[in-house]
Amino acid sequence: MYDFQYHRPKSVADAVAALKKAADGKLIAGGQTLLPTLKMRLAQPTDLVDLSGVPELRGIKVEGNAVVIGAMAKHAEVSASAEVQKAIPALAMLASEIGDAQVRNMGTLGGSIANSDPAADYPAAIVGLNATIKTNERTIAADDFFKGIFTTALKEGEVIISVSFPVPEKAAYMKFDNPASRFAMVGVFVAKLAGGVRVAVTGAGPSVFRVKAMEEALAKDFSGKAVENIKVPTTGLNSDIHGSAEYRAHLVTVMAKRAADAAK
């Protein structure tokens, strides 16, 4: 790791100020991706601004028909939360399957979505549940947040405060994980919301995407059978040593079918 200056502010305002003062500052949340990246010297920030000491980024609460989760909530906290388990069991289940127990004790919701790894799990829940991301500057709709591989709508100096997940009528997340890394080869989140049905896919493409044909089919008949013959085009899908674009496209249909049948 290259050396850097370290800051641990106690408020979002102080975190933003520290970022602005730095020549090339970076926020660190749980650090489960950033620290391995720094160890490989793939990044060289001059300053790290650690968000772990900022109380306003913590907490999980139910507000009306939504579950609001603080950006620094750890995966282990989300999966063990009685509120999340009751309101959106699919979200608690998704969080319980990220990485391993030790990673879940460090990794955070905000860190995961700000990083926008193409194989991360949370982006599927954000888009699948039509969540709203609240930052220190604005609110961002799920469909506007993820811009591509490791790219989001976040601007320099913008800090995620919390994410508001609407409580669905029913939902499920099914992932086919890489057995070594536990990242999603393909993960599909399906949800029946007051505003309609959503199907969000992670792991298959450069970033999370929706499958409109499946959404329309599930809106008419919310069952695995309704999507079992809907194929996604292979154009633009990931192809690597773990699986070809054709294989991933096949998995999208299989995981969508399983998720639709498992939704509750």
């Binding site: 370290y6 650090g31 620290l35 282990a76 127990a101 460090m106």
Partner: peptide, 15 residues
């Protein structure tokens, strides 16, 4: 009280 991987946490975070 929580298990973590100490190769993926800064010493300063544990202050």
């Amino acid at each position: 009280g929580k298990s973590i991987k100490s190769c993926t946490m800064l010493a300063l975070r544990a202050d």
